[in-house]
């Protein structure tokens, strides 16, 4: 009775609902301690663990830090919020709203996306202000950050489809994937020097492409063509979105 009829009306309703879901997550979950720990502190400590005792200058390390910060922060909201909402049954509100599951998945991912952009600004600013790391070109940086953040936020939503009421279940599954990604994506070890066993899976990691774009904005050269990087990230987003939609549908009993 309130929404305008027709295709455009429904598209608008879907985006409106997705944004409402994202806003709700921002209000409720951004300041939850476990999200701050797993989304913001964890990548910093991971990074320190690698950086300490290495001869490399901070400037060389900044792009990698930005990349893994995005990986962890973007995929940290939904694996916590969705199991909690299953437990208190507010999740039923989302899956009974007059919108498609795509809108629900998008809205949930949107909150992880925005969160990680906020968190990624910290190493980015630290690089510029403290270490005076110059950024050679802004274009790959902006696209690298946006696409990587959206990609891993959607991956977080995908993992959260697993029908559990405990965030820990999803976090441990997620870490089985997130941690290995760091080693095969050129973050600390350049893609060229990843051992042969790893080379085969380098292609399968979205972080490879995101990291490649972010590195390019600092060093000026990329391993792949930047357009390929962007195209691959978009393909991963699409795969995660469609898979998440399927799984949420499947697990609604």
């Amino acid at each position: 009775m309130t929404e305008p009829a027709g295709k455009h009306g429904q598209l608008y309703a879907e985006l409106f609902a997705a944004w409402a879901i994202a806003k709700k997550d921002i209000r409720i979950y951004y300041l939850k301690p476990n999200i701050i720990v797993s989304g913001a502190m964890f990548p910093l400590f991971m990074f320190l663990a690698f950086a300490v005792g290495r001869p490399a200058e901070p400037a060389v390390m900044i792009p990698g830090l930005v990349a893994i910060t995005i990986l962890f922060s973007a995929s940290s909201i939904e694996p916590v919020s969705i199991p909690i909402e299953r437990r208190v049954r507010t999740f039923d509100r989302l899956v009974s709203a007059p919108v498609s599951l795509h809108a629900v998945v998008l809205g949930e991912s949107l909150s992880g996306f925005l969160y990680s952009i906020g968190i990624a600004l910290v190493p980015l600013a630290a690089g510029l202000v403290i270490f005076r790391t110059p950024i050679i070109s802004v274009f790959p940086l902006v696209f690298g950050i946006l696409l990587t953040a959206f990609c891993f936020a959607t991956m977080g939503t995908l993992f959260a489809a697993y029908p559990t009421e405990s965030p820990g279940d999803i976090m441990s599954m997620l870490n089985m994937v997130r941690l290995p990604l760091i080693f095969i994506s050129g973050v600390f070890i350049p893609v060229e020097s990843v051992p042969a066993v790893g080379q085969a899976v380098v292609w399968l990691s979205p972080l490879t492409y995101g990291n490649d774009l972010i590195q390019a904005s600092y060093h000026g050269h990329t391993h792949f063509n930047p357009l390929i990087d962007m195209a691959m990230l978009c393909i991963f987003i699409l795969i995660f979105q469609v898979a998440a939609n399927r799984l949420y549908k499947k697990f609604n009993e």
């Binding site: 409106f16 209000r27 507010t90």
Partner: peptide, 20 residues
């Protein structure tokens, strides 16, 4: 199934927004 961390008003606004 209400959101404990939101106010009564925010709960209502959220639901209404889901229904556009």
């Amino acid at each position: 199934n209400v959101y404990d961390d939101l106010t009564a008003w925010q709960n209502l606004m959220f639901t209404a927004e889901l229904y556009a």
